[in-house]
Write a protein that binds this DNA or RNA. Structure first.
Lengths: 193, 193
DNA sequence: TTTTTAGATCAACCAATGTTGATTTCACTT
DNA sequence: AAGTGAAATCAACATTGGTTGATCTAAAAA
């Protein structure tokens, strides 16, 4: 079902949605980018909205899968966060345009998909909040409002797609380590004698 | 020129744009929220786009002003970042809906405002990058890619409007300190004997 | 060769959306 | 009481945007 034309369409459409937003990127924009007629696009997708919906849930599932694997491994809090960073860097490198969708375009889902998406996102964030909360309770992490801490961890990861969709990342491992170092130890140079 | 009706309109319109995006929130949505006719709104604003444009640049200027004051004070890097956090917490508390605009809706500006806005945003980010870069060079901050560090600092602040537009913040000082502690020292509890 | 089938093309439709102009309402000034 | 000006109402317009159906092309299957 998915052939090469379809793949080219996806790539161009996602890029346009990143630049202009879902509503801002029109079917005619897609057609222009592909050099074909508008009606032609309906050979690839049933509708604009269903395209968005499918891409969103597909990407959402990738994050869920990754997170569930991390949790299933039953690591310590520090290693779990380490793996979480790896997950975000990997997905943001592999699917920058879809990760961008996840940040900005979910509001344009229709019911009932919208509520379903938000439910899943809440479940996802609760899982992370559980990890963070456990770390704070056990004393591995600093004493801080768990909600704020969760927001901060996620915020430290969610900017990645901007970075990866603009320029090629030279060294993935270095990037991971820098983010990890920031999340764990912050920006200040450790005081040493 | 700005009377009470105008203020109510702004509030409702900004809230709707936060929820549905600029293109998703229609003039008729605004009218419904106000309980008036669509045409009525043109008593308050010249056009939908000019409303967006004005709000965006007004908010952008508030950030510029705040940042310029910080820089003019010629503090050390650590204090500059401290003040930057204060600035973001304050503006995100005072103008959550406009800060949200700044994150998501600038793409819908027309030329030449779009290019002007992006220029200003670049100038702004370069200023911050300069602070961070100076801190890294001087050894006050950890050795890390300055671009990544800048992204991380900004990311640690840009989520705030989500938090402040959803629920009232109990203690502003605590919030500031938690974010600061995260940016400077990270999540890990400092090892101590 | 004939048949089939995916893909391209063209024209058009219909709902939604930003905007305008004409007219009316109504509070406030003189 | 008359007049002024802002604000509300109503109807309508022009454009845009997603989508469809009919038709044509051409390559693959039979």
């Amino acid at each position: 079902m998915i052939n090469e034309k379809h793949a080219v369409f996806r790539q161009k459409a996602l890029r346009l949605i990143l630049e202009k937003g879902y509503k801002g990127a029109t079917m005619r924009d897609f057609a222009d980018a592909l050099g074909c007629d508008v009606a032609n696009i309906y050979n690839y997708i049933p509708s604009k909205k269903s395209f968005l919906t499918e891409e969103l849930f597909q990407m959402s599932e990738r994050f869920h899968e990754g997170l569930d694997q991390i949790i299933a491994a039953k690591l310590g809090v520090e290693d779990e966060i380490r793996q979480l960073v790896r997950l975000y860097v990997q997905l943001s490198l592999d699917y920058p345009l879809q990760v961008a969708l996840l940040s900005n375009e979910w509001r344009h889902l229709d019911q009932p998909e919208l509520i379903e998406f938000l439910d899943e996102r809440n479940r996802y964030e609760r899982k992370i909040r559980k990890i963070v909360g456990r770390g704070i309770k056990s004393g591995e992490l600093a004493k801080i409002n768990p909600d704020v801490a969760t927001h901060l961890v996620l915020a430290s990861l969610r900017w990645l797609f901007i970075y990866t969709s603009e320029q090629p990342v030279k060294n993935r491992i270095t990037l991971e380590n820098e983010i990890l170092s920031f999340i764990f130890k912050g920006l200040l140079r450790p005081a040493s004698g």
